[in-house]
Design a protein around this nucleic acid. Structure first.
Lengths: 233, 233
DNA sequence: TGGATGACCAGTTTGGAAATCTGGTCATCC
DNA sequence: GGATGACCAGATTTCCAAACTGGTCATCCA
């Protein structure tokens, strides 16, 4: 395979993914057929199977890329302003990133209509589990602990469960229909305060600690991103 | 209608409710028919409609009674030990009461199988809303604030949203299938610590404040219980 | 000659008509 | 006059043929 062939191959893969994303958001997993995608991407049906081994694999790559894009956004935020690594800021930003992107909403909030059979057991946070987001949470907390950004007066595992509960609940409420409550921004602020009070230490962390944490988190998020993008289909 | 007739009437109503509850837990809302209930309770079908105006009303009474029973349990706990009104203890107990009772689990966790069409829009906390549990939360928080059991450094409405998110998330995780994480007791403890850190004041409250709060909460819970039991069908 | 293709296949889903069931009513009965 | 169950309209289930879908692979070029 020549370099040019490979480039063509990639380009076609991207085109297929773009079409798949568009159709997924518009029609939902179940209604989108491989034929639809092939036709719109102007490739043969078999060609799609040269890129992914199944329909599910194709759409899982879409989801992984979505998560990767969000990680990217957070990495950027940290680069621009290291203080973004303060836990209450990171989770606030995570909330807004999730709720602001339709596909991300589907992943964490499990819009059954959109994801259809992709959701392993139809329970909300299960897909997030499969994508490794829960382990990711634990690793983030470990970094926070290492650099004194959160308290260490209870076990890491407990903190992980607690933050998972808080996030799950926040996402759940954020997509409640006809919920006349706070706006998304306000909900993000509420989440931030809750995280701060429940996890952070009373005394403000030293600048040096923040910068050390920023460095480690940048690396960690980037590793996660790379890992997500590189997974076999 | 004589007093004796009335007693017979009530007794029959109770029998119907008992049968309905048994069948609901065993088969789920959709599979239980009014005919089933009438046959098992050995009454005519029409008789059921002398007690409730619809199938939904009958089952809603079941749910209201379940909530009332839980309020009763909490009232008892407070009477025996006033320190149970400390927020982290109340929510811990609430969590265990909910997760320990199948019907209660269904209400707050929204087992779609069991509740079927009873759940207004199929979203988890919506039924809890209909039953007035969310307003109830807000009123509880107000009492906590009045007696210095929680901080007042952010708006009541924000605290209400925060606690609703934490509870929803905790219930959600508690019913995740194949979740190899903490036991229910441990989850309850984690919830307690989270609530304490996120809402309570750093200094322990005075005994007199606790007892005053206990009194008000007892009254409030009891009013809520009465109101639930007295609602028209 | 190896990557691209679409005809093809087995298994699943769909459409919709017929049959059954269910919540709710009410004339009748005791 | 309270209790009952036959009855009804509308909803749900059932059934099966027709249509569709994910995935394969023999064939086709560039």
């Amino acid at each position: 395979m020549s370099a040019q062939d490979d480039e063509q191959h990639r380009g076609r893969g991207e085109r297929i993914l773009a079409v798949a994303q568009e159709l997924l958001l518009g029609w939902g997993y179940k209604r989108v057929t491989i034929d639809d995608i092939a036709r719109r991407a102007r490739v043969g049906k078999g060609t799609i199977y040269l890129h992914w081994k199944s329909k599910e694999a194709l759409f899982m790559e879409l989801l992984r890329r979505e998560v990767a894009a969000m990680l990217d956004a957070q990495i950027h935020e940290i680069r621009v302003e290291p203080r973004m690594v303060l836990p209450h800021r990171m989770f606030r930003s995570m909330f807004l990133l999730h709720t602001g992107r339709p596909l991300a909403r589907a992943i964490f909030g499990e819009e059954a209509d959109i994801l259809g059979a992709l959701a392993p057991d139809r329970s909300a946070p299960s897909l997030a589990r499969v994508l490794g987001l829960v382990d990711h949470l634990t690793r983030m907390l470990q970094v926070f602990r290492d650099h004194g950004l959160i308290r260490v007066d209870r076990p890491l595992a407990d903190q992980a469960h607690a933050i998972e509960a808080i996030l799950s609940g926040s996402f759940l409420l954020s997509k409640l229909p006809s919920h006349a409550g706070p706006t998304l921004e306000q909900q993000a602020d509420i989440l931030a305060v809750t995280v701060r009070d429940a996890f952070e230490r009373p005394d403000p962390p030293a600048r040096v600690a923040i910068e050390a944490a920023a460095l480690r988190l940048e690396t960690m998020l980037d590793e996660m991103r790379t890992q997500l993008l590189g997974k076999p289909s």
